[in-house]
Amino acid sequence: MDKMRSMEVFVRVVDAGSLSAAARTLDMSTVMVSKHIVALEKLVGARLLHRTTRSQSLSEIGEQYAEQCRHILHLVQAAETGAQAMRAVPRGTIKLSAPVAFGSQCLAPAMVEYLDRYPEVSLDLELSNRKADVVEEGLDAVVRIGLLKDTSMVARPLRPLHMIICAAPAYLERHGTPLTPADLSRHRCMDAMHWRHDTRWRITHSDDAKPPAPRMRSNNGEALRQAAIAGLGVVLQAEVMLADDVARGRLVPILRDYWPAPRPMHLVYQRDRQSTPKLASFVEFVVERFGLR
């Protein structure tokens, strides 16, 4: 028999004062009520109720067990109530992983509006260029750049990530402006350490497929940005990371005809979590703000 249901019946018998009275409130036969009590007594290995034809009383073990049953049933009810409330309105913590450039420059500032709109939602945002695992790491969603291989997830397309090539005015004044990708072999270039060898400096329309040798590498895009502004060399970086520097004249776009093709970007999450109001509200907001237009 269902253990939780038997606990409910036992507590109702204690409160009602008899098996027959409990049976009436539960819309259950007295025989079935008695079976639930017997099942619990077998489970705990002791008598819970002393019963006669005219009265019943709790045994010492029964008194203690009744209080424990009340506590357990209260916790279960509270958990169910909390779960129902979370399904009614967005509530809880969104656990998200996103690439550093997009996450820091675009997603994080937008979260001010999202969290204001949904005051009962919190956000755990991990910024990393590694490929986070949604299931193993217990994440609600990830922002993924590049072609997707896992078709078991829901993938909502976002605006593609554009990459641009820039250098500081002072650097170009000292070393000249490269006009073709082949010219980069004579310049100081900077690389992201997480780029694979076959995807470094994905320059298009170039007869020379060999990427330039880096003078500086870093696992942090902000470090490369600061080095480029300081005049160290030529940087290939996400447009969202460098847009303000270009607008303010701290960096100058170069080799425009050879910029890499935009890379696809998606918001990825598990199918069975799609109906959660917390996640649904977040997905709706991100797609509304950063989705394809």
Rank of each mutant, 00 (worst) to 15 (best):
L43W: 02
R196I: 02
R217W: 03
M7W: 13
T30V: 12
E41Q: 14
C189S: 09
L75C: 10
G45P: 01
G82A: 10
G176Q: 03
E222S: 11
A230H: 08
V121A: 13
A213T: 14
G146L: 12
K210W: 12
R293M: 11
G45M: 02
K131L: 10
Y118S: 01
E80L: 15
E288W: 00
A22Q: 03
V31A: 10
G92K: 09
W259R: 06
V286T: 13
P99Y: 09
R47C: 02
P262G: 06
Q68T: 09
L125V: 01
E80F: 11
A192T: 03
V44M: 00
I94S: 12
F282L: 10
D272T: 11
I145Y: 05
M111Y: 06
V9Q: 09
S97G: 13
R263A: 15
G103D: 08
K35I: 04
I72Y: 15
R24Q: 12
S18R: 04
G233H: 05
L49R: 00
L75D: 10
C106Y: 01
V154L: 14
V13P: 09
H205F: 13
T81S: 15
E222L: 13
Q64T: 13
H266N: 06
D15N: 15
R202Y: 11
Q68A: 08
I165Y: 05
Y114I: 00
K210Y: 06
S59W: 02
A39H: 15
L75S: 13
Y269T: 07
P181S: 02
